[in-house]
Design a protein around this nucleic acid. Sequence first.
DNA 1: CTGTTAGCGCGTTCAC
DNA 2: GTGAACGCGCTAACAG
Lengths: 338, 338
Amino acid sequence: MASIKDVAKKAGVSIGVVSRAFNNYPDISEKTRQKIFEVAKELNYSPNIVAKNLSSKKQMTIGLISSGMLDSGEKDSHISFDIFKGVYTATKENQYELAIYLIDSQEQRGKSYAKFCLERNIGGTILQGIRTDDPYFEELLDTNIPCVLIDIGVEKEHELIRTVSIDNVGASRKIATYLLQKNHRDIAIMAGKREAYVNNWRLKGVYEAFEEFNLSLPEERILYGEFSEEIAYQKAKEYLKDHKPTAFLCFSDLMALGVLDAVKEAGLKVPEDISITGFDGLMIAGYTNPPITTIKQNFFEIGQQAARAVQRLMEGKETEKHIFVDYELIERRSVSAL
Amino acid sequence: MASIKDVAKKAGVSIGVVSRAFNNYPDISEKTRQKIFEVAKELNYSPNIVAKNLSSKKQMTIGLISSGMLDSGEKDSHISFDIFKGVYTATKENQYELAIYLIDSQEQRGKSYAKFCLERNIGGTILQGIRTDDPYFEELLDTNIPCVLIDIGVEKEHELIRTVSIDNVGASRKIATYLLQKNHRDIAIMAGKREAYVNNWRLKGVYEAFEEFNLSLPEERILYGEFSEEIAYQKAKEYLKDHKPTAFLCFSDLMALGVLDAVKEAGLKVPEDISITGFDGLMIAGYTNPPITTIKQNFFEIGQQAARAVQRLMEGKETEKHIFVDYELIERRSVSAL
DNA sequence: CTGTTAGCGCGTTCAC
DNA sequence: GTGAACGCGCTAACAG
């Protein structure tokens, strides 16, 4: 491939000028600029990004560091994929390069994130599926590389950290309210993992809804399905042995699937005997029998917003601490009014 | 981050030696090698891939060029994702870098593949979802960059081209035979796009199966659903107006979904009145009512094999012209025996 | 406005 | 076995 030298030579100028022409410097005569582009087109030249990356001070590559993408199940893998596509799209929009680092949660988590970034001149990262107490995350922060976190919170404010997610509290309150408005009172909550941010946010939303209705939510009505279909199935099955709630409010669609199975297995009908709601907007939740009412997240947009936020950070622009992405309550047929 | 200079200085050697130590050159005394690695660990040094990429002659980055990943539907997007994961995994195994180029089939297909590769010092590519008559593909070949194609064939042998897919002819013959063995005779074929390689391979397999049973397959029993759920639905609906086949053999699960809808809408039962088979192994096809018997492809492995093949090509090793990945006939409940 | 030059971090001869 | 020096393709001062 033609290099900058070839263009310079053929255009009868020095490489410096060619470089500046391609980087839109103002201090070049229109004539030579024209000439340079003309020659460049002839030679089919376009600047080598690797070299550019090495010599330039500005970092133009974004790292997407994601845990759980490789071992996500077939039912929910499209979440990761949508995030990825959103990130890719927004990254490409502005000529940034994207470097992907997938961490397999099983294996001893390979190389440190910081090392990954430093080796590749990565100037900003998007982290998904990691935890704030991840030692590699702490290390990454020490390098002063901006980070945008998806679906988790941060305890202390940090100049180089931003977060993006839906308003989990609000969304959760919304779907709980939805159930309460349909006169459900004996609602069992299929929560996720106790440590997870989203779990606690969603729990908060549920409590808020109950409070608004002047209702209390006894601890024993909260089950922890660990965001797993199988565990949720087991927990629901167990619970149904000596309880008969009018509804299950689940903190993920995956768990809702498990609950749906358990309910059916108990000889109960959905939604006639028991209503079920999910959370996330998995594709499959729209094709179960009955299809499940849920909160649909726009993961593509989450990815996009994350990528745009990290770009702003890299460019030193102002950026909100937390970016909320819209969500939507999708009414399907898994809930009946009492 | 520490650079090679820092290590050299602290270890009391020149950068040349450090470089050679890290690249496993034999001509270094064990003592200095030890010393260098020791210092490197202290400084938390690891070679900058960008610089390495620029200075080194060997290309260590693989390009994944994929059309249709961005605009794949929610039901079949996991195909692309699985391929991607397979490619990623195999790429990482051997310290190759991965550069991804997603082409949106709507937009005017952006930059040429060749340019994309040249700009990034990409030494080998994996192409998915593109067509052999794509002008950018031809251009890419001219650059002498090895290409591995997924799910398409090549007319003429080419030193730098390899292809990977399942044995579509065999798989198709297998599922057709499966239907024939269950005494289905009036089988309608929901084929894909006439131009697509996979379509023609699958068609070939079907013909082979019919021949084996000494049966003929009249042209009018072949419908073209364009690999689209909606079009397949329309075609099936139309067809059912004046035909009542005992089975629909579909060239994709997506089309099988459309056909399933059409059959149900016609007041017919699956599989009692009409049997249906799919192709691909989409997740959703396992959760329809009834779940659909299909050929399951292992897209993860397809991606893996493609990545390994391109590596072999890049390393100048022998590689088979076409790599066949295993598939599996999954029996579910959409087919009845007559 | 343009040319020159010094890096960016590393690989790779080529002497010694 | 090791160091010096050049080059990969480009950016970014700086001088003119």
